[in-house]
Amino acid sequence: MFNVRGLNVAYGQSQVLHGIDMSVAQGEIVAVVGRNGMGKSTLMKSLIGVLPSRAGEISVEGIDVAGMPSHARVKRGLAYVPQGRQIFGTMTVRENIETGLVVTGKSDIPDEIYSLFPILAEFDKRRGGNLSGGQQQQLAIARALASDPKILLLDEPTEGIQPSIIKDIAVVLKEIRQLRNLTIVVCEQVLSFVLDVADRILVMENGRIVHQDQRKNVDEAAIAAYLAV
């Protein structure tokens, strides 16, 4: 249901992604792994449209969104949780989630979001910028879910977060997939997290996908070798 064909992305003259192909089925969790600077974040940014792509097709349920601005892609069902959370620091927790509601035209936050992240209900009126890193990560995911997406893109959701919260996030991601039959693409460096959540693992190197396999067939040592510096 989510297909990427021949995606090319460049910063000025230097090409970063060289024809990425991937297709993700409904309800599948795919993890993209790779070392720093291999193009994982660039891939995520170009999928949501924060970075323009030079060539290639990104289709959601058969509709090509590659030429659309970000907000139109969100309307088609993509949602993005960026690296470093990037929540709106001066706005309250509730207002942060409401920004995600804008495309849906709804005015009330679904109860489901608060039951996934009870801590957010408790801190409803606090400013987003005053939450801890792990709470901000939950807020960023809640904000993305508020737009009622079909595909959730997460860029390094475990960065700078303590191990116990990383486990929680893994649990929540699987729970969301259960609840909504959501498609999830996550790029990540923490191997234990990847092995915990993913159905399929793609390995990126120098802007290309060099290896992919189902989680059940994956040789942990082989993937770890790709991640080793």
């Binding site: 924060v50 907000h71 993005y80 709106f88 409401e98």
Partner: peptide, 20 residues
């Protein structure tokens, strides 16, 4: 709400679905 979001972070506002 949208204005305050855009003021805080324009790129991210687009990525959560606000027509900046």
């Amino acid at each position: 709400l949208q204005v305050r979001a855009v003021v805080t972070n324009r790129t991210m506002s687009g990525a959560v679905g606000i027509d900046t």
